[in-house]
């Protein structure tokens, strides 16, 4: 019994590590061209930006909320930074700063609706998401902005060894938020809040502020992701990101062991979840699976992950 408990405990705590190990093992054996340094570098590059968005989502999910506007925030920040840099010719640092500020404000709006007006997070962010998409298309007239300045692109696309600066920026965010979620009083309060709102409030955790702050973090990180994506594709688009992106990010978080019911989750888990997702995509590509099969496979992965999560949470 103790051995079984130990094994089940390990599986429970390290689900995402196990998933990723199995995936890599499976892919290395069965998928040609998977096991190569170039492919791994590509994987990291693909995972870098969603990982940043996923950190924000994870922090929202920790409270038991959800941020469905995240993908649309990416689009809005992309077109904003594009407009500011190219059309209004604002300096690049200021343009980036303003875009981040925009994210912060959108997050504040979401947070206030959820915390003070008591609109369920699901509805609030669904609504603001469409507003953001609308605003992005209004301010751009639906058009994309190509050919961003080289200095701007260089921020994300400079190669250091095999990897882009984007990967290192992402890594920096991961480390910073590892501290925030796992080593700081903020993270501890957040966990307590997610597990039991009344107990944490009555123990003096600033639950109202926590609940607003998570949406601000999420939207701001979505802005970061939007700016980095714009650098990556050299094109600012109002429809970048979108609902599909949001769901990919949620899938990554769930794969990484973040509970949709709040209070349970980790930054390494979420990042590994995103990487797992990218490995699956990568294999689908390498195996020449017909394009339309891709989303079906993803759906199966999401369901499996959620079932796995439910089962593991039931067996304490």
């Amino acid at each position: 019994m103790p051995i079984r408990r130990k094994i089940s405990g390990f599986v429970k705590n390290n689900g995402s590590v196990i998933i990723i190990l199995l995936l890599v093992l499976f892919a290395s054996v069965f998928v040609k061209n998977f096991f190569s340094l170039r492919n791994f570098a590509l994987l990291l590059k693909q995972a870098a930006i969603p990982a940043i968005a996923c950190i924000g989502m994870t922090i929202v999910l920790m409270t038991g909320g959800i941020d469905l506007s995240l993908g649309y925030m990416i689009g809005l920040s992309s077109i904003s930074v594009g407009l500011l840099v190219k059309t209004y010719e604002v300096g690049i640092p200021l343009a980036i700063l303003l875009t981040l500020l925009l994210g912060l404000l959108v997050g504040l709006f979401n947070g206030v609706c959820v915390q003070y007006i008591r609109v369920p997070a699901f509805i609030t962010t669904l609504g603001t998401g469409y507003i953001l998409l609308g605003v992005a298309q209004i301010i751009s007239n639906g058009a994309s902005i190509n050919h961003m300045p080289d200095v701007f692109l260089a921020l994300g696309k400079t190669k250091i060894g095999l990897l882009n600066t984007t990967v290192f920026i992402s890594l920096a965010f991961c480390l910073a938020f590892y501290y925030v979620l796992h080593l700081s009083t903020y993270g501890r309060s957040l966990r307590a809040f997610g597990l039991s709102e009344p107990a944490s409030r009555l123990s003096g955790c600033p639950t109202a502020r926590l609940n607003v702050s998570v949406y601000m973090i999420s939207a701001t990180l979505a802005s970061v992701a939007g700016i980095l994506l714009t650098m990556d594709v050299n094109c600012a688009q109002p429809t970048m990101g979108g609902g599909d992106y949001t769901f990919q990010v949620i899938t990554g978080a769930v794969l990484g062991g973040v509970s949709l019911y709040g209070g349970v989750g980790s930054i390494p888990g979420a990042v590994l979840g995103v990487i797992s997702l990218k490995i699956i995509n990568n294999c689908i590509n390498l195996l020449n699976v017909p394009y339309y099969w891709g989303s079906a496979v993803l759906g199966i992965v999401i369901l499996t992950a959620i079932i796995f999560e439910n089962v593991k949470n039931r067996k304490l």
């Binding site: 966990r191 307590a192 597990l195 039991s196 009344p198 107990a199 009555l202 349970v264």
Partner: peptide
């Protein structure tokens, strides 16, 4: 509910 964060 109000006193403890039970899973912690």
């Amino acid at each position: 509910i109000e006193g403890l964060v039970l899973p912690m």
